[in-house]
Design a protein around this nucleic acid. Structure first.
Lengths: 138, 138
DNA sequence: TAGTCTTAGTAAGTAAGCTGACTATTCTTA
DNA sequence: TAAGAATAGTCAGCTTACTTACTAAGACTA
């Protein structure tokens, strides 16, 4: 085990994030989902029919990242994409029955991730929120 | 800005990590480096001639991830790889003069990242260390 | 010593994320 | 109303990271 006391905080942050995502993905694999796809499905389920751009903004990735992600979700039948009749540049994404079903199953798994690790401390949450809030995205 | 109070902590964690890495990469781009390459160069500089496997272990990525990363670093002349004479299965990685020089420049940039964000609080570090320590990697 | 187990590294395939550059549509303004 | 600016999405190219499966070399054991 490396001597993490000497790691820069940024390095701790990304390593922790990668390990947590890894744990998530392990649980989600049997469902055919991954961590980012669950984030996206969640956002679509929440925000009703929504454009890919807004979706990208809401989970803080680039539009170029959201495109292929939606393509994968669509090819598996978890979402639907249609052109917005009122602005033909944009699309409207909505979740399918199958997507909703999978999303519910994934929420059932949620509790089993990272049990034993005190990940829900309020102070940790507050510091992470500060980072996300204060880091400017271009 | 989304309502992060309702985000799961894991989501906060990976979003924060991605944004921090983004900020890092912006600073490193003029040097021709990226966040993971600096991690790797750092580890090589620290641990002297070291095998790719140990290197992967020390920064907690898979060996299959380390391989291509070293190939890129080598093609830019930042590191050197040679076969270990005493165990011809393995290699020994060492940093070059050029790599050392770049690494020093990147350390100079380090201070300008994330200034204004309280990223170095001790409690944040402790919680992150706990996550990295307690998350089993296969 | 021959056969098996272990270890080091690589290859192939997929996913996710980025930048920069492009097309198509809509909006704005002179 | 025509020209230019802005917006939505995609394409191409690159990097990082994972899984599964492989080869080569060394170690161990019957």
């Amino acid at each position: 085990m490396p001597d993490m006391d000497y790691w820069p905080t940024s390095r701790l942050l990304s390593t922790a994030a990668r390990l947590v995502e890894l744990g998530w993905n392990e649980r989600l694999r049997p469902l055919g989902l991954t961590y980012p796809t669950v984030l996206t499905l969640d956002a679509v389920a929440d925000a009703g029919p929504i454009s890919p751009g807004k979706l990208a903004e809401s989970i803080r990735v680039q539009a170029q990242t959201m495109g292929p992600l939606l393509t994968r979700l669509e090819s598996r039948g978890f979402i639907r994409r249609e052109v917005n009749r009122f602005d033909r540049r944009s699309q409207l994404v909505s979740i399918t029955e199958l997507g909703l079903e999978l999303l519910n199953q994934s929420h059932g798994q949620e509790n089993t991730v990272l049990e034993g690790i005190d990940l829900d401390s309020e102070s940790l949450r507050e510091e992470l929120i500060a980072i996300v809030r204060d880091t400017k995205i271009n």
